[in-house]
């Protein structure tokens, strides 16, 4: 058992898969010699060489397009888009090409590739470097969407993504890169499409993703201590496929659902979960479903503004306290 940072778990996950499978290659900007701008890919170039670890020009369409062409013809590429905001630069390639190729060729051409990206707030980088865009990817049929919250899940879900026959968008949270967690030695392979109950409670169910998971856990501790409210926290981990079984089970136990999303409010992923729960668990609910989201604004850069825009522990506590009473 070793303690790894979330950022080290990225390199460990990629290395595990590249060592196992010669067809896994890795490309992106500043991923090789520099080890990644977030230092998530240190040592990979040295270990696997420039044939399989490829520093590229600043060219998102070409990175994703080339990864796609390589996947179409037999490799299993991992492509990095440095900031998830830049998905908009290469969105045609992701949304129109990669997501639809299996369908448009009636299964003749599969696209086993992973697009990794640094998503979310926390670096004070402003509206074009800090967005949470997992809901963009969730809206496109043909993509699988993963967003881990712990080093263990980073390594295991990354391995599962690489081995999956479908294109997987892998959202790392840049606010979590320096967090630490226990990761057992040896090969770790998780399962896509599975949520995790990270805290079991009795009164309310909080469903969260990525950096909102540790915040929800903190909020749950405070709710228990200050209000005697016992909260279950579910880490969604995978938006597509979505583990509705676990979510519904946990909502049915408590009769209360709160979603905690970093997405701006309109069409954030919590809206989809709220809709599913309303349809499937309506008679088990004891009160309205409540979404806690970033307001529908571009994310500002200043510390105070950014910290207040995304859901805070205080806001989660206050919202649950107000509604669950």
């Amino acid at each position: 058992m070793a303690e790894l940072t979330y950022r080290d778990a990225v390199a460990a996950g990629i290395a595990q898969e590249m060592a196992r499978d010669e067809s896994v290659v890795f490309l992106g900007e500043d991923i090789g010699a520099a080890g990644g701008v977030f230092k998530t890919t240190l040592g990979l170039l040295e270990r696997f060489g420039p044939r399989r670890v490829r520093d590229t020009p600043i060219s998102e369409q070409a990175i994703i397009g080339a990864a796609m062409g390589a996947a179409m013809t037999g490799l299993r590429p991992i492509a990095e888009i440095m900031f998830s905001d830049f998905f908009a630069v290469c969105w045609d390639m992701i949304a129109n090409e990669i997501a639809k190729t299996r369908y448009m060729t009636a299964g003749q051409i599969a696209l086993p590739l992973v697009i990794r990206t640094a998503n979310g707030y926390g670096s004070r980088f402003g509206a074009q470097h800090s967005q949470s865009v997992e809901n963009w990817a969730m809206a496109i049929p043909g993509l699988k969407v993963v967003a881990p919250s712990t080093p263990l899940d980073v390594k295991g879900l990354l391995a599962a993504a690489v081995r999956d026959p479908d294109p997987v968008i892998f959202f790392e949270h840049k606010g979590l890169y320096s967090t630490k967690g226990e990761v057992p030695d040896g090969e770790i392979v998780d399962r896509l499409g599975t949520a995790k109950v990270v805290r079991q409670g009795e009164d309310v169910t909080i469903v969260a993703l990525a950096a909102m998971v540790p915040k929800s856990l903190q909020a749950a501790e405070r709710l228990a201590a200050e209000d005697g409210i016992s909260a279950t926290v579910v880490d969604v981990r995978s938006l597509v496929p979505l583990d509705t079984k676990t979510i519904f089970e946990e909502v049915r136990k408590t009769g209360r659902l709160y979603t905690v999303e970093e997405n701006p409010r309109l069409c954030g992923w919590g809206a989809e979960i709220a809709s599913l729960v309303a349809e499937e668990c309506f008679y088990d609910l004891d009160g309205p479903i409540v979404r806690i989201t970033t307001p529908h604004v571009p994310l500002p850069a200043a510390d105070l503004l950014e910290d207040n825009a995304v859901p805070t522990v205080d806001r989660i506590v206050e919202t649950v306290r107000r509604n669950a009473g």
Binding site: Q61, G65, A66, A71, D92
Partner: peptide, 20 residues
Amino acid sequence: VSWSSCIGSQLPQAVGAAMA
């Protein structure tokens, strides 16, 4: 492969297939 209606998107893909 199929032509893309989006114009030009096949070109980076072709480069990637050649790199592969």
